[in-house]
Write a protein that binds this DNA or RNA. Structure first.
Length: 232
DNA sequence: GCATTAACCACAG
DNA sequence: CTGTGGTTAATGC
């Protein structure tokens, strides 16, 4: 027999990182979520999800940055996206065939909730508004992937690297001054290129005075010029 | 043809 | 892990 926690003890209810879909759940529904999930921490580099593994969990990233990466034909890793909390990760894999189609690794210290799929699915079936919000966030995600796909292949490497730097500044760190959470090799995997190309292009940007780079600390100096470059 | 872009390799710190 | 230089192949003008 499952022990019911009193509503005051519901961790999900007071969660400051509640997803937009979860924010519309009522207390009873949040209790279901709470009683069927666990919340755990990950160190940088730790794998949160392994490609190919079977799953009955919906994963929700409450803290940190993580990379979604897929191993392609012969051991070449490709970063599909950098996920920033708070987001669901791997939802399509669970709904489709319960096999994770890509890995997820922590780039910074991360925290994530693992939610039992059956309970989650029940909420989706029972609460149309919740389902609607979930569809919206999944749709935005798909559109983001399509845009990335086109930009990655059509822009030249210089343009795409500029775009990524601006993306970090505007959408991930909300500052022109940030610490890259990636090694040069990972940056290469993110743009579908080699680490050498990344090094050379970043060096060009530094020489042209567009950015400053101390180790992993990036400062964007000439944002307008970088924006111009990112269009090519 | 010649220039540009970027991958691959080797090697050094 | 990061940075450099040389070489090579593809593509564009």
């Amino acid at each position: 027999m499952e022990r019911e926690k009193p509503i005051q003890d519901c961790r999900c209810q007071g969660c400051n990182f509640k997803s937009i879909p979860a924010s519309i759940l009522n207390n009873e529904e949040l209790k279901i979520l709470c009683n069927n999930s666990v919340h755990i921490e990950f160190q940088p580099g730790e794998k949160i999800i392994k490609q190919g593994s079977f799953t009955t969990n919906i994963v929700y990233l409450t803290q940190g940055l993580a990379k979604l990466h897929m191993t392609g034909p012969l051991n070449k890793d490709e970063i599909l996206k950098i996920a920033k909390s708070s987001v669901f990760i791997g939802v399509p894999s669970v709904f489709a065939d319960r096999i994770f189609h890509y890995s997820v690794s922590a780039l910074t210290k991360c925290e994530a909730c693992f939610i039992d799929f059956n309970s989650f699915e029940q909420l989706v079936k029972d609460n149309g508004t919740f389902a609607h919000e979930l569809i919206i966030s999944l749709s935005e995600d798909v559109i983001g992937h399509f845009h990335r796909c086109v930009n990655k292949t059509q822009k030249n490497k210089t343009g795409y690297i500029a775009e990524i730097l601006l993306d970090f500044a505007d959408n991930y760190f909300e500052s022109n001054d940030f610490t890259l959470p990636l090694s040069r090799a990972e940056f290469g995997e993110l743009i579908g290129s080699s680490r050498e190309t990344v090094i050379r292009i970043l060096q060009e940007f530094i020489n042209d005075g567009l950015i400053k780079d101390e180790g992993k600390k990036i400062t964007i100096i000439e944002k307008e010029k970088l924006e111009k470059i990112s269009e090519r």
